[in-house]
Structure formats: C-alpha cells, structure tokens
Design a binder for these strands. Structure first.
Lengths: 195, 195
DNA sequence: CAAAATATAGACAGATCTGTCTATTTTCTT
DNA sequence: AAGAAAATAGACAGATCTGTCTATATTTTG
C-alpha cells in the first residue's frame, strides 16, 4: 500500500535469469557460457538482462554473491543440526562436504573455479569469490573458539586449507574420499589445539 | 651422423612457442589468451603452430605436461637440498611453497587453474592437470614413508589437501602466510602419524 | 481505462575466436 | 650447390562473442 511496502522479490525475471546463469556457469564455466546461450536457456530477452545488469561480469558477481549467501546458510544449518557438542559441530562441516561431493551434479567449487577463471586478484569476480572463502573462515574461527582451541584463528586457517584442498580433490577424482581425509586431519589438528 | 643421433631439442620453434604459451596462459588464463595473441607475442606464424600441434587444446596439454616435469624436478631438488633428515625433507616442501608464493609473478597454480577452466573431469586438459597433482602425491607418500608415518598414504593425502589449499589462499590473498599455516599443520600431522 | 514501466524479438556493430589454405621464402641437409 | 623440409605472411571461412538499438507488445500501477 504505502511505498516500499513490497520489496517485491526484487524481480521475477532477474531471479530467474540468475538461477539459470548459476546452473549453466556451474555446469560449464563462466567464460565458456555466452550471453546468448544463457538467454536462450532462460527464455528471456537480451535487453532484459542488460536492464538488470550492466555487463556479464556484473551478472556473474551477482550470481556469486547470491550463491555465497545460500552456501553460508546451508553450512550454518548443517552445523546447527549437529547438536551442541563443539567438536561435533566443527566436524559437521566435513560431513556436510562429503554429502555435497556425493551429490549428482557436483563439479567442484564455483568460487574456486571463479578464482581460477578470473586469476587477476583485483578482478571483481575474483574478489567476490574470495570473499566467500573469507566468510567461511570466519565461521570456522568461531567454531574453533567454541571448541576451545588455544589459537582459533590458526586452527581455522588450517581447516580452510583442508576444506579447499578436499573440494579440489573431489572435483578432479570424482570421489568423496577427500572429505574423510580432511575430516581425519581436522580431528587431529583440533585435538592438538585443545590440549 | 647416424640417424637418430640428434633428438635435436625437438624443435626450437616448438619450444619457443610452448615457452611463450606457458607465460601468457599463466599470466592471463588458458581460455582468454587467443592463438593470435600468442603467435604475435611469440613472433611465429600460425601454420607453424598447427604443424606442431593439431589444436589449441593439444598445445595446452603439452604446456601442462612440460610444466609438470619442470615442477617435479624443482620440487625434488628442493627436497634433496634439505639434507637427510626425513622430517626436514618433508617439511622442505612447504618452505619451497613459501618461496614460490613470494615470487614476483606468482598467480596461483597453473594446474589448479587448468582444472577450473576445464571443469569437465574427462577433458584431456583437466586430466593432464590432475595427473601432476597425483604425481606430487606419490612424492609425498614416499617422503611420509621415509619419515616413518604409520599410514603414509593417509598422511600424504592430508598433506596434498594442505598444499593445494595453501596455493589457493596465496593466490587470492597475495600473501605467503598460508605456506606457514600449512607447514605448521603438516608438522602436527607428521608428529601424530609417527607416534 | 490510461499512463508508465517492463519485457519482447531481432537486427546490428564490431570485435574476436579457431583452424585452413596458398604461395613464397628461409633454413637445413646432403 | 641442389633438393627437401620448415617457416613465413596473410587472406579466408564460419562461428562466436558482448553489448546496443529500435520498434512493438505486455504488464503493472495509479
């Protein structure tokens, strides 16, 4: 009724475009998927895209930021579902990884792939992708603190390395074994950090 | 004199082309660097390229395989230079990482970036890149065995995750700190594995 | 219902891409 | 010095790319 009553869903077309973009970019790659392919798949006119985004790069950044929010929400939910034991909560991250690795359309990490497709560290897409990894690291630091690690930031840094390494390995091998390797290593590091 | 006397250096032009390709691909990316750009930079005719390689993809695979050999040689040398202590030899890998991260033109790992630019796991470029990571893992397993790890393959797997995670982090942050994080974690895991 | 905002199809520009072909020149080998 | 092999420049095809523009149609809003 009054202005600013309905944020509306931002725009159905915009959302649909971003969903299709996310799916195609993840399946085939950011650079290889062209605007025309995306528009045909989404069934949306070209000018609609360019009315919502000034460029393909801006669309990619928007997709990455949306995915960042979604992944963080899912990860936080997985941690919550693990109960109250700080150790279990921390290790739940690695169980969550395994489930992800075993999912049908798993093709690595969209953020890591974005970092690599846009290797210039000052590129907005590169930065947006890394921002997600930093956010996850903040969560890990919190979990490490709650688990009583003597130097939580240090433990979280190591866990981040294990996680990203495990994602890479799972992508290349098609196996989810790296989740167990990472979990086992994380468990050792956690014990060592809480002595 | 007799046939097969001189493998020749395979071909000076071919080598020069591959060197230029490696440099440009690493600097800017495999997909973004076009054949024409590469040829202009190398000062080589297009038909020379297509006489040595059937396609751009084949050139990329050749570049990756050459880089694989070079990196493995450098890594082995770094290990040898670390002396005879098995622990020192294993941890030398992480010191070598730090030097690499701090080098002027460091832009992440060409193999990881190739994996991400060609995300389809059956793509020849993806496979060639992963082959390198497997070869490094073999070296790590050997070092873990010599260091007396009870389950060397398990330790090597964890070290591989730390290494690849550290490379990603160094690329995105521009800092070599992740080498120290990975080294510290590796040290803990090694001690735990040799109790 | 009328006005304003949004979406449409599709042509278009201009650049780029990989790979092929040809005709000429340079380099190597004997 | 002569013949074979390798490299050259550059045109060319045909496809693709991002982004712009226009004129029409649809949807939303007051």
């Amino acid at each position: 009724m009054s202005p600013a009553a309905a944020p509306e869903a931002v725009s159905a077309k915009r959302t649909h475009l971003m969903n299709t973009a996310q799916r195609l970019f993840y399946r085939d790659g950011f650079r290889i998927v062209g605007i025309d392919t995306l528009l045909a798949e989404a069934g949306v006119a070209k000018m609609t895209l360019y009315n919502h985004f000034t460029s393909k790069d801006e669309l990619i950044v928007a997709v990455i930021e949306k995915l960042d929010a979604d992944v963080r929400t899912a990860l936080a939910a997985a941690v919550e579902a693990a109960g109250r034991s700080p150790t279990r909560r921390l290790l739940a991250v690695f169980d969550w990884l395994k489930v992800w690795f075993d999912s049908a359309d798993f093709k690595g990490c969209a953020f890591i792939r974005a970092l690599s497709e846009y290797p210039d560290p000052v590129h907005p897409i590169h930065r947006a992708a890394w921002h997600h990894k930093e956010a996850v690291n903040v969560l890990l630091t919190k979990l490490a603190t709650e688990a009583g690690a003597s130097r939580p930031a240090e433990l979280a840094a190591a866990l981040s390395l294990l996680i990203n390494g495990a994602i890479l390995s799972a992508h290349a091998t098609g196996s989810s074994d790296s989740a167990a390797s990472a979990r086992a290593a994380a468990s050792v590091l956690l014990k060592q950090a809480t002595i």
